[in-house]
């Protein structure tokens, strides 16, 4: 891979310096600051540190003993698994299907992307209406299908026992489903773009050799998509770790009964609502560490042939 063109390193500066300067100033430096904050005692967002924590690693101990943190970790791992299986899975299937049709491919490409275009704030409002306790779209539907228990009081008032989609029994579905749904289109576009970068000659050659659709997919498309799929995987893991806006709009702080935390929402709540800036920073560090570790693992597993 290391061609002779790229033996001379001087142009490299031009390529790398601008981007990394930006990153250094507005991403890495602030994050280093964030790491320093994890050892400090900080009473509020605007306040300067009041000195070191006692012991200085206090927040890291808390990270492992905090029961809500455990809840957040558990939910986030579920989210990561679902993201990989459903989001990337559905996106891959849809992309392969779209690749196989002639008429309307453009249409599907356009509409699958719609959910990403809408801001999470707007989507959150929408899903809240869909899963609303009294008179939400799903509950209206269940009621009309006779799936909800009702009760008539002596004074003739009818009581409907609405299904609470945000209670302990249902919240995981209600929380994960919108996130899954929204980002399928995202991975879809990436995979479709990858598919289009595969030379059609390869397929023609394979067709001449008598390979049918499934074999073409299995032996040509998937291996060639490996890089792209690997990118998707990494994006899915890191995305899931910091998912915030949609669950936050729908569930707020740990609903229901502190069983609904995700690492992203827990960190936000600690930093901006509980004013635990130093502990919030610690959770941020954990998110990054987990992200790096998990995506490295997935790179190792799925991309053994390629370097990096």
């Amino acid at each position: 891979m290391n061609s002779m063109i790229y033996k001379k390193k001087t142009p490299l500066l031009l390529f790398l310096v601008p981007a990394f300067l930006f990153l250094a100033a507005f991403l890495f430096y602030p994050f280093v600051q964030n790491i320093i904050n994890t050892f400090m005692k900080i009473g509020g967002l605007g306040r300067a540190a009041e000195g070191l924590n006692t012991p200085w690693y206090e927040n890291y101990i808390r990270l492992f003993t905090d029961p809500y943190m455990r809840v957040a970790m558990k939910n986030t791992l579920v989210l990561i698994l679902c993201t990989i299986v459903f989001q990337v899975g559905i996106a891959l299937i849809l992309a392969l299907l779209v690749d196989g049709i002639r008429v309307g491919a453009q249409f599907f490409r356009t509409v699958y992307f719609f959910p990403i275009v809408i801001s999470a704030t707007a989507l959150g409002l929408m899903f809240n209406l869909i899963f609303l306790y009294k008179g939400g779209m799903v509950n209206q539907l269940l009621l009309s299908l006779g799936q909800l228990e009702t009760d008539v009081r002596p004074n003739g008032k009818v009581i409907v026992y609405w299904l609470d989609w945000k209670d302990q029994a249902h919240f995981l579905f209600t929380m994960l489903m919108p996130v899954m749904w929204q980002y399928v289109g995202f991975y879809f576009v990436i995979i479709v773009t990858g598919l289009n970068n595969i030379s059609p000659d390869l397929f023609e050659a394979a067709a001449l050799d008598g390979a049918d659709g499934w074999n073409r997919t299995r032996y040509i498309t998937l291996p060639l998509l490996r890089n792209v799929l690997c990118t998707c995987l990494v994006l899915a893991i890191t995305g899931a770790l910091k998912v915030f806006d949609l669950p936050w709009v729908m569930f707020g702080a740990g609903m229901p009964e502190n069983q609904g935390w995700l690492t992203g929402t827990y960190m936000y709540d600690q930093t901006f609502n509980k004013m635990n800036v130093d502990y919030g920073s610690t959770i941020a560090v954990l998110i990054v560490v987990l992200g790096v570790v998990l995506s490295n693992i997935s790179n190792r597993v799925f991309k053994p042939s390629e370097d990096l």
């Binding site: 026992y161 209670d167 707020g252």
Partner: peptide
């Protein structure tokens, strides 16, 4: 309310 632990303030006020 039945869903007091999962309802928003806006929801219960509207109720």
């Amino acid at each position: 309310p039945e869903n007091t632990l999962t309802a928003s303030d806006a929801e219960t006020v509207e109720m």
